[in-house]
Design a protein around this nucleic acid. Structure first.
Lengths: 160, 160
DNA sequence: TATGAAAGACATCATGT
DNA sequence: ACATGATGTCTTTCATA
């Protein structure tokens, strides 16, 4: 399996903070030679410890109003139908740009993270688009007001 | 407000996919001179449209079992106490490395994203650490089985 | 704001300790 | 694992439109 030592972890932590740090910067901060840092990063990429490099978009492009929505479908007689219906619902939801994430929760449940400019638009989306989906048993809305951890997911998930 | 044109958006989309693309690569793909692309990226950074560059960690470092947990505190007589208690709970939860995100939901609610190696450990954490917190009215667990959108948040949020 | 050219910084790789 | 140096590529700046 993967054995990360302290140097690997230190490099990963620095890159997580700022993936544009140059190798010589990292080497300087950690008091290691550039060649070593270069070698480690290359290995971390090859081993897929580093999956990808990406950007987080700033607040000005982020939706101001967020909510987690839990959707539960009715359980029909034919189970195979439920399976296909859930997958269809998830794919459908995934297509909306204001639906930031969609996950399956159990046999008949879906969790979605919704983002909109303001509370009114968010409520309207939930009422007019989500609750309007056929054959739902329950739609539970958990508004998100603030973060103490993971706030950056919004800028990470939002599209352009 | 911010006016992004097609070139800005194209650059952002490319950087979102791979933030290590060189300016000359991007310039080549978009059929624009390097200096123009360089100028745009610089502006996007200054305007804070690009908030930061970061890495997403691969599956081998990610928790295999995830759940959204909704926690609702009991509403006490003194409202100011609830306020401080909720903030205390959020800060406490945020300190666990396996708690990937913590958000407030309404006056008395908290939403947390929990990650663990497997289902057993996850259930144990919920039972022994979360349900053990005092003065809770309700703890609702929504296991996350798969994603159709936003799967990458796990590698984005997980620490080293 | 866009572009082209030129200078400097950087990553990368090979070789040797 | 670390050092050094050679090479080509990339970023960055600046002058110009």
């Amino acid at each position: 399996m993967i054995q990360l030592d302290d140097l690997d972890r230190a490099i990963l932590r620095l890159l997580k903070e700022d993936a544009r740090l140059t190798i010589s910067e990292i080497a300087g901060r950690l008091g290691r030679p550039e060649s070593t840092v270069h070698f480690r990063i290359k290995k971390l990429q090859e081993q897929n410890v580093i999956d990808k490099y990406t950007i987080v978009l700033g607040e000005r492009l982020q939706p101001k109003s967020l909510a987690i929505v839990y959707i539960q479908a009715e359980t029909p007689i034919i189970e195979d139908f439920l399976e296909r219906y859930i997958l269809y619902l998830m794919k459908t939801l995934s297509m909306f740009p204001n639906v930031l994430a969609v996950a399956r929760s159990g046999k008949a449940g879906i969790i979605a993270l919704i983002g909109e400019e303001n509370r009114e638009k968010l409520n309207r989306f939930v009422d007019e688009t989500i609750r309007a989906l056929p054959t739902l048993k329950k739609v539970e809305v958990f508004p998100i007001d603030s973060f103490t951890k993971g706030k950056e997911i919004v800028g990470f998930l939002v599209g352009v």
